[in-house]
Amino acid sequence: MPRNGSFAILFNTLVVMFMLAPLVIVCLVAFTPENTLSLPGWNWSLRWFRKVFEHPDFVTSFINSLWLATVSASIAVGLAVPASLAITRGNFPGRQALEGLFLSPLVIPHLVLGVALLQMFARIGATGSFVWLSLAHVVVITPYAMRLLIAAMTGYDRSVEHAALSLGASRLTVFRRITLPMILPGVSGGWLLCFINSFDEVTMSIFITAPSTITLPVKMYMYATESIDPMMAAVSALVVGLTAATALLLDRIYGLDRVLVGQR
């Protein structure tokens, strides 16, 4: 591996600092004993964390968000795998159009989608339905999985599949034993990206969540519009901590490189 020059190291350090600084600050603020958003001095307190758990609706919305992200990311990847297989290797009319259609949610503002879906949900009586909320999220996050999977599948050597076929494998066996393991980094990376995007989505969800299906970001947004206190920081710190723990765990078990890049 080539060694980085001192300039490159400096540049990368600055970029990482720029990206991490807000997270670090919000985590520090979460420990303040004061009533305002301020950095804790010598006194650190867990009072705002305690306050979070005194709001059961925050815990519920967090669980809602987890479920929603898990379900919609899985559906999105389930759709994106066959779709990107067809797009990268098929040779049928309308292939380009299909790819455009799948990626189009990327260019539609979530605000517009939210308003449109609100009207549709009201009309078909889907307000407050977890299933319809998940489907709305699937629409928004599928492009992310598609992008990653198409990238993972282009330049993929088809003769590997031919080799498996020639050795007597059925088409299903070829997919299960050869194709899927080879595109696994794209699949897992795509799922993770979808999960994060769904978990993070607020603009569209504000319009289409009901009290029973409210997600954490929407809950936080609504809380923050009413009162600004360090409890928001505590919630954020909890999410950051949980994400970091998950990433560490994944790295321990599989290695993040293997999940996202495909190296072992």
């Binding site: 590997v160 080799a163 498996a164």
Partner: peptide, 13 residues
Amino acid sequence: LGIVFQSYALFPH
């Protein structure tokens, strides 16, 4: 049939 491909086409995993 036994086939040897130009790119070898070994199963990388």
